[in-house]
Design a protein around this nucleic acid. Structure first.
Length: 313
RNA sequence: GGUGGCAUAGCCAAGUGGUAAGGCGUGGGUCUGCAAAACCCUGAUUCCCCGGUUCAAAUCCGGGUGCCACCU
């Protein structure tokens, strides 16, 4: 007898591929609740730019981890993983199916692969980061990479010298725990996942169709109040908001440096590039079941195929 | 009609005699604490066309074509 693992459905895919609608439809058919896996939808105040599901779109299905964080707070995968696990547990307690839905591959992986980030003293982490940043600015990327290589050659060899962010994080991890990051990876892989994951990835055989949906979505955001939302957010001077597609692309427009049309074109292009990165992430998930949206004549058929897959053993 | 300038990758563009920088876009990839971020890889057998000079031409000369500016 193997231990009963917690069923967990996942709906992943690039922006504008139709994840939200599919997740809601699945929740209805399978008695589920939706847990967002989107690094930007967690923030309140930017629902339009992040295409967070509206009241109507949710259609009575409970959604979690959306708009519960302020732009002034610091948020990251570590906190997300914790919250998501808790929420998934609660949904299961209610006897319902948790459906993880979103486009942030890292966030999804944190849950499905049961990655533990551990408790860390915030102040201590901040201090180390600041120091490493300074050191990197002074000595350069090569020197930092060399440093990492002395105590974690396995990871260093996988990282590009200019991938400063990851190199520094790996050094930080070692300073914090005394254990090389690659060793942490090993330990995590040895631990079995508590979830019975059914991962769906939405994709398009004809990429032009996805790009077209992205363009239309951006145009639609305008009608939903994108400009008003962005104007308000720009006043916050939030580094986090600057990461979201929309804010930084629209800034030149508000600064009268370009036309609205130009800013929107850039926003569409940036969204397409983002979608491409997402696809590249999801493509390598060998256990995922890919659903080509353009293979299905209508939405109901897509839902049918999706729910059939989730209910397989 | 005249005079001057310009023609280099999908776009912007450096290069004035020695064997085609760079940026953007595109496509591919990486990804374990800011991930809608960050990072990596990716293209011109040839520089508008034809002829000439030269060991050697995107670079110089002549002629054509196209675009721009100014003049009549």
């Amino acid at each position: 007898m193997t231990a009963q693992r917690q069923p967990l459905a996942v709906v992943a895919g690039p922006t504008a591929s139709g994840k939200t609608a599919l997740a809601v439809a699945l929740a209805k058919v399978l008695n589920g609740e939706v847990v967002s896996a989107d690094s930007m939808q967690v923030y309140k105040d930017i629902p339009v730019a992040t295409a967070a599901p509206s009241f109507d779109e949710r259609d009575g299905i409970p959604h979690h981890l959306i708009g519960h964080v302020s732009l002034s707070e610091s948020y990251s995968v570590a906190r997300y993983a914790e919250e998501a696990r808790r929420v998934i547990d609660e949904i299961a307690q209610r006897g319902r199916l948790p459906i993880l839905c979103g486009g942030t591959g890292l966030y999804i992986a944190a849950v499905t692969d049961n990655i533990r980030y551990g408790e860390q003293d915030e102040e201590k982490v901040k201090a180390i980061r600041a120091r490493l940043q300074e050191e990197a600015a002074l000595k350069g990327d090569q020197a930092m990479w060399d440093t990492l290589h002395t105590f974690d050659p396995t990871l260093a060899d996988k990282l590009h010298i200019h991938d400063r962010g990851r190199v520094l994080r790996a050094i930080e991890m070692y300073e914090l725990t005394g254990v090389p990051m690659s060793e942490w990876h090993q330990r995590q892989k040895a631990e079995p996942s508590p979830y019975d994951v059914k991962m769906l990835v939405l994709d398009f055989k004809d990429r032009a169709r996805l790009y077209d949906r992205i363009d239309r979505r951006v145009d639609g955001m305008l009608k939903n109040g994108l400009l008003e939302e962005t104007a308000a957010v720009l006043r916050l001077e939030s580094p986090t908001a600057e990461q979201a597609i929309g804010c930084k692309e629209l800034r030149p427009y508000f600064d009268a440096e370009c036309s609205l049309h130009e800013a929107l074109e850039v926003m569409k292009r940036r969204s397409r590039q983002y979608a491409k990165r997402q696809m590249s992430w999801f493509r390598r998930l060998t256990t995922a079941h890919v659903l080509y949206v353009d293979d299905y004549a209508d939405f109901d058929l897509l839902v049918e195929a999706a729910s059939a897959f989730i209910q397989t053993d």
